[in-house]
Design a protein around this nucleic acid. Sequence first.
RNA 1: GCAGCCAGCCGGCUUGUCGCUGAUGCCGCAAGGUAGAAGAGGAAAGUCCGGGCAACACAGAGCAUCCUACUUCCUAACGGAAAGCUAUCUGCGAAGGUAGAGUAAUGUAGAAGAAAAUAACCGCCAAGUUUUCUCAACGAGUUCUUCGGAAACUAAUGAGAUUGCCUGGUAAGGGUGAGAAGGUGGGGUAAGAGCCCACCAGCCACAUGGUGACAUGUUGGGCUGUGCAUCUUAGGAGUUGUAAGGUCAUGUAUACCGGCAUUAUGAGGGUUGCUCGCCCCACGUCGGAGGGUGGACCGCUAGAGCCUAUUGGUGACAAUGGGUGUAGAUAAAUGGCAGGCACUGGACAACAAUGUUCAGAACAGAACCCGGCUUAUAGGCUGACUGUUUUA
Length: 132
Amino acid sequence: MEERKYTLTKSERLCSKTLIERLFAGGNSSFPAFPLRVVYMWLEPSEGTSDVSILISVPKKRFKRAVKRNAVKRQVREAYRRNKYLLLDALKSQGGKRLVLAFIWLDNQLRSSEEVERKVQKLLTHIVESMQ
RNA sequence: GCAGCCAGCCGGCUUGUCGCUGAUGCCGCAAGGUAGAAGAGGAAAGUCCGGGCAACACAGAGCAUCCUACUUCCUAACGGAAAGCUAUCUGCGAAGGUAGAGUAAUGUAGAAGAAAAUAACCGCCAAGUUUUCUCAACGAGUUCUUCGGAAACUAAUGAGAUUGCCUGGUAAGGGUGAGAAGGUGGGGUAAGAGCCCACCAGCCACAUGGUGACAUGUUGGGCUGUGCAUCUUAGGAGUUGUAAGGUCAUGUAUACCGGCAUUAUGAGGGUUGCUCGCCCCACGUCGGAGGGUGGACCGCUAGAGCCUAUUGGUGACAAUGGGUGUAGAUAAAUGGCAGGCACUGGACAACAAUGUUCAGAACAGAACCCGGCUUAUAGGCUGACUGUUUUA
């Protein structure tokens, strides 16, 4: 059993402008679990900076104040960090293919951290199930 | 004590654990790994002013446009502060709010009102003329007569009153209006009037005080309409903002730059909006090298820095000494979870100190950096001052 590190470094975050444009250009899978929606896209092993890259988006339309937007991003990021091996373990059987995903906040209100974590778990589980 | 007012300050602390950015050290050719200092605000916000910094532009003249506007003072600068001045409003008060260059010229000011500025509509006064009346004086004429008179009438004269017209004087009075030719009283006058005088308000001059705005005056001068706009005066204003701008990597169409050569004198471009003026010039050739994509580094945090003491100043602030190293992210870090402490409120127990338990804890997140302004903000602390109650 290898050591599991519940980290979330910069290489695991999606920064490339071109990849972001490809992700949102259309044709990629998406799945909602209110108050979240996930958009994901498969990459070849040569692309990307890590096995899984994520992006969290909270539109300004939902929260006018930066404080609340940041708070939501932190909740989602924390929830992914604690549950990312749901996805990483499943990905080992996929022959080195890589994944890009974006979490988009849909609600106009703040939610509790427990609820956000449950929804993230649900979304990750859904992606794993769709691999088979 | 309670209520208030002004100024300044704080706006959680801490333990464990899991994370994020990461100066720097170590390992490594490198990618990276590992240890790891430090890590949001008073407003970081709005992006409203001012400045630094950067790039580009810039011979010069005139006109236009825009901004500022009581005084002195602070500052790198400001449309910001400080201390004052004048007017006005609010509050019992401590205090707070609002406005503030000038008025020579031009324009404008609804309704109202006689009239809105070289004022005569009504009214008042005078002269002329006119209507009517009264009175006076004597004379004239006529009529009457008892021939003594003077009863009546007529026209004229003078005085007064009066009707209309006209000429002139007059701003004391007149419904209005934000404002009516400074106000009140007296003298004066044909009637009136700063025409004259006293007091009062303003203005100008002078004197005194103040750096000054201004203030004061048993001083002098009869000088006296209000608002707004244009305007006038004084000072100021190049444009774009760190996605500026620079370096490196990748690497291709002829937009760009420089040299040389050549043509033309009119179209275009630049110079702040306009005018003048000034500058540039299509094409060829040689050399440099660029569109787009998208990554790294610099810019990027030592700055008009922060803390503190003393001195000067009413104060904003300044000078000097000492101390200090204090965020630099890039789809954007500074957080999550579990405890403890402190704070506030409720409930319960208790004479009380206090204890138990349950809740609550604002506005808000750096994006080149400063100085301000504006707006949001639960709760709390400190100091000066004001009002009030009780007690002494």
